[in-house]
């Protein structure tokens, strides 16, 4: 894997590469019609064209960094087919049900006071859980990928553990710990602090369930990236905090963003764990997913799916924000931008 030079070294490699024949195959890569999809993401294409024509004639075979069109189309079709079957159809089912009684009823379902209360609670929960887990994720990824120590595999597995815990069990253990008959519950109640069947419990359950997301996105990335840049910065006299904010953070920003987006989506959509600890008090401790369940159980299917589609909308909005950042970054370091 390529050791990425940081800081000033960048320009040097860039310049060197332009003069080397290595850039050759790249020029053949993007067929004309291919670059249409996302102009923002084709930063390399123009620059790489330098010195290409001569190169092409010298190499009779198809460059090994590009797939033939039929493979490209075939794979794309296969991937899209898979997504359509497993994600597209269920999502379409939700939307068609949501609008089955017309747009007016759709909006009415969202304007109900109890729906609004559920939306507020969900936003609050995600707003607390996501930053907390982001901070943790950065610390954990730094620790796990930048140092060698015994028990690291175990630590990694423990970080993943909340994925392996059934959300229902996650809720249950929180009740067992903080409930009226739990380990800490009686003491907390005596001090006027209520956790389960109140908002803190909902937040806690969400933090538990979304715990590994950011760390899990960052670790493989930092692992693949190696430590050369940071070590270089260290030899140049940068402090730990400087290395972290100036070198590491800019490098991981896309992974971090993915982590945040996923963590946020899951935090807002969590059902099982929250269902156990919330107590289902309408208008007080109901989150969007719980409100969906209530409506569904009242045979109000259109309203249930309308509120559920709101979660889709929130997810799409977060993704749009992500896309916007990618677009603003102009493809520099954007995950999809480097290749076509």
């Amino acid at each position: 894997m390529d050791p990425r030079p940081g800081g000033g070294a960048v320009k040097v490699t860039g310049a060197v590469r332009e003069q080397l024949p290595v850039a050759g195959p790249a020029s053949v890569r993007p067929p004309p019609g291919d670059g249409a999809g996302g102009g923002a993401r084709a930063p390399g294409a123009a620059g790489e064209a330098v010195g290409a024509p001569a190169e092409r004639s010298s190499r009779p075979r198809r460059p090994a960094t590009e797939d033939p069109a039929w493979i490209r189309r075939g794979l794309t079709a296969l991937a899209l087919g898979f997504l359509a079957l497993f994600v597209g159809l269920p999502v379409a089912a939700v939307l068609s049900e949501a609008f089955s009684k017309g747009a007016a009823l759709y909006l009415a379902a969202l304007r109900e006071p109890e729906a609004l209360a559920a939306i507020r609670l969900t936003l609050l929960t995600a707003g607390i859980a996501v930053p907390l887990n982001a901070a943790f994720g950065l610390a954990a990824a730094w620790s796990v990928t930048r140092f060698r120590y015994r028990g690291k595999d175990l630590l990694l597995s423990l970080i993943d553990l909340p994925f392996g815990v059934s959300p229902v069990i996650a809720g249950m253990v929180i009740v067992l710990l903080f409930g009226a008959r739990g380990l800490l519950g009686p003491w907390l109640v005596a001090h006027g602090c209520r956790i389960v069947f109140a908002i803190p419990g909902v937040v806690l359950a969400t933090v538990f369930v979304t715990f590994p997301f950011v760390a899990r996105e960052l670790i493989p990335f930092l692992e693949a990236q190696g430590t050369e840049e940071e070590e270089a910065a260290l030899t140049l006299g940068a402090s730990g905090w400087q290395i972290f904010t100036r070198v590491t953070l800019p490098n991981v920003r896309w992974s971090l963003l993915y982590g945040l987006v996923l963590c946020n989506a899951r935090a807002m959509g969590e059902f099982g764990a929250v269902s156990v600890v919330s107590g289902h008090v309408r208008g007080l401790t109901d989150t969007i997913p719980l409100h969906v369940e209530i409506l569904y159980d009242e045979y109000d299917f259109a309203a249930a799916f309308a509120v559920a589609s709101l979660l889709l909308l929130l997810a799409v909005l977060t993704l749009a924000a992500k896309q916007l950042l990618e677009w603003r970054a102009g493809g520099r370091g954007a995950p999809h931008g480097s290749r076509s």
């Binding site: 996302g38 597209g88 999502v91 989506a265 807002m268 959509g269 997810a315 993704l319 749009a320 896309q323």
Partner: peptide, 17 residues
């Protein structure tokens, strides 16, 4: 971009939904 957005939806949808 739309397909990219589709990928995350299984997380965003409550499991019951």
């Amino acid at each position: 971009a739309l397909v990219d957005a589709l990928v995350d939806l299984p997380f965003a949808l409550p499991t019951a939904v």
